[in-house]
Amino acid sequence: MNSKIIDARGQLCPKPIILTKKAINDPNIPNEFFLLIDNETSKENVERFLKDNGISHQTYQKENYFQISVSKTGKKVNSSSEAYCSISTTKKLTADHIIAITNDKMGSGSNDLGKILIQGFMNTIKEVSPLPQKIIFYNNGVKLTLKDSPVIDSLKELEKLGVKIQICGTCADYYEVKDKIGCGKISNMYDIIDSLTKATHIISP
């Protein structure tokens, strides 16, 4: 049956995930399909499964169940035997270059456009390999590291991946935002110059 709806209600883990994976890999199931789940834990697990496999989805709370709309977007959940072999045990996650962010906008021109661009830039760093060794924030750039910054989640994720975040302390003091910083380490001019000197190259968007 070429159904657009996968009903996993009444099913406990791991059944909902098995059904989800089957639907994703089944060419007869349309690219956009709906998954119905009626328990919180299974919903969370399926969401995490989709997220970790890079499959876009959205969850809607219905009266007494959840509807997750899944979009295959061309990506298949498939792990070939090669994927196992390709795990590099020595590969460094980060390279030795540094990204220096001096403003909370990217490029010159429209302020609004500049803000959109810098957000896109920060959110995309993690997709490009190799990762930078460090990201240094100074002047207006420190505003991107605040707890309510639109890119704070991306910065935290980068930190987890081993990218160091250095924030200019003088700048944070000047803008009076030191207590609002949501990631990284406060740094001084000596450390910043030291980092910039030792970097293989510096990217400043």
């Binding site: 883990c13 791991p14 995930i17 059904l19 834990t41 969370e44 697990n45 995490r48």
Partner: peptide
Amino acid sequence: IEMGCIPGVAFRNL
């Protein structure tokens, strides 16, 4: 695991 038989507790551990 390939077929999706991932016990719920693995997500809890994650």
